[in-house]
């Protein structure tokens, strides 16, 4: 009986692995072409209808067992064969499916063609869940219909076909490319950036120099305005001048150490804790030793 249970658990484990491996909902129909006369060729050198699928996830997706169809009433028209590694689509990658009506050509060849007015549907492994669908428009020769951005965005007739490549092709120069062109050795960047860093910090310096001076003047004025005799005022001013942050830091550190060593409290918590300290039992079973205490390396 136990063995059967173990087998059931093992079986469930394997099934759950199988289920986890499927992220087919991340697949998208990304681009397709209806009339191909001089665009992409398949491995037999034939120009044919093609459909580009895109894995929009960051994990590999196995589309074996999923379906592709041009008939909403027959969702299981073409099933991607199982047991072929090319059905495992890498993260953010594309795969071209040839809709030539001849599935014997290979794994990625469908048993149907499609025409304007029909719909293309990508269906999950259960044969029911429609993961993505798109209406086929009228297209001219070698024109493709594509999403404006890979895996998302509106559909449009693409200016240039981008089979097995990103739909958005940036033709304008990026900032990085521009820098590479105008500043190949990095000197312009270094000098510009350093002058900005210095400007920012010099301005900060100037402002705080003035604020500091104002603060010192204010402090002196305050001392001068007090009713204390002149000699005392002078002594206080001199002491303030001489007493730097180091003195305060030393005093603070001494107080901190005193507090730490003597476990002194500024404010009592007024919480009484009853602590059970009977240690007659084995520490191996004690929560005090096994759960509450964190090991601490003591360094000299």
């Amino acid at each position: 009986m136990k063995q059967i249970k173990k087998l059931v658990v093992l079986g469930l484990l394997l099934v759950s692995f199988g289920a986890a491996a499927q992220q087919q909902t991340a697949m998208r129909i990304n681009e397709f072409m209806t009339i191909n006369t001089n665009d992409l060729q398949n491995e037999y050198g034939v120009h044919g209808q093609w459909i580009e699928l895109f894995n929009s996830s960051y994990g590999t997706v196995d589309i074996s067992g999923c379906y592709l169809t041009n008939d909403p009433n027959n969702l299981k028209k073409y099933m991607f064969p199982k047991g072929d590694l090319i059905t495992k689509i890498k993260p953010r990658q594309f795969v071209i499916i040839w809709a030539d009506g001849n599935p014997t050509n290979g794994t990625l060849y469908t048993n149907f063609n499609f025409a304007p007015g029909e719909e293309l549907l990508f269906v999950g492994g259960d044969g029911k869940t429609i993961i993505d669908r798109v209406k086929v428009p009228d297209l001219q020769e070698n024109q493709s219909y594509a999403r404006t951005a890979d895996g998302k965005g509106e559909w449009h007739i693409a200016q240039h076909t981008t089979a097995r490549a990103a739909n958005i092709t940036h033709t304008e120069e990026t900032k990085s490319q521009k820098m590479a062109r105008i500043d190949p050795y990095g000197w312009i960047m270094a000098l510009t950036a350093m002058s900005v860093v210095f400007t920012a910090l010099v301005l900060l310096y100037l402002i705080f120099k003035q604020i500091g001076n104002a603060s010192i003047r204010r402090s002196r004025k305050k001392t001068a305005a007090s009713n204390a005799p002149e000699a005392v005022k002078a002594a206080v001013a001199a002491a303030e001048e001489a007493t730097g942050g180091e003195t305060y830091a030393a005093i603070a550190m001494a107080m901190h150490l005193f507090k730490e060593e003597n476990d002194a409290h500024d404010e009592e918590s007024f919480v009484v804790t009853l602590s059970h300290t009977d240690r007659t039992y084995s520490p191996w079973s004690s929560k005090i030793y096994s759960l509450r205490q964190l090991p601490q390396i003591k360094r000299k």
Binding site: Q177, Y185, A193, V197, Y205
Partner: peptide
């Protein structure tokens, strides 16, 4: 506050390494 300027000067490390990385063929 004049110590601020030392903090600025040390940032040459960033841009020195930037120039060296460009020399080694990294993109900007």
């Amino acid at each position: 506050p004049k110590l601020l300027l030392i903090g600025a000067a040390a940032q040459f490390g960033i841009f020195g390494a930037y120039a060296l990385a460009l020399l080694l063929g990294f993109s900007p």
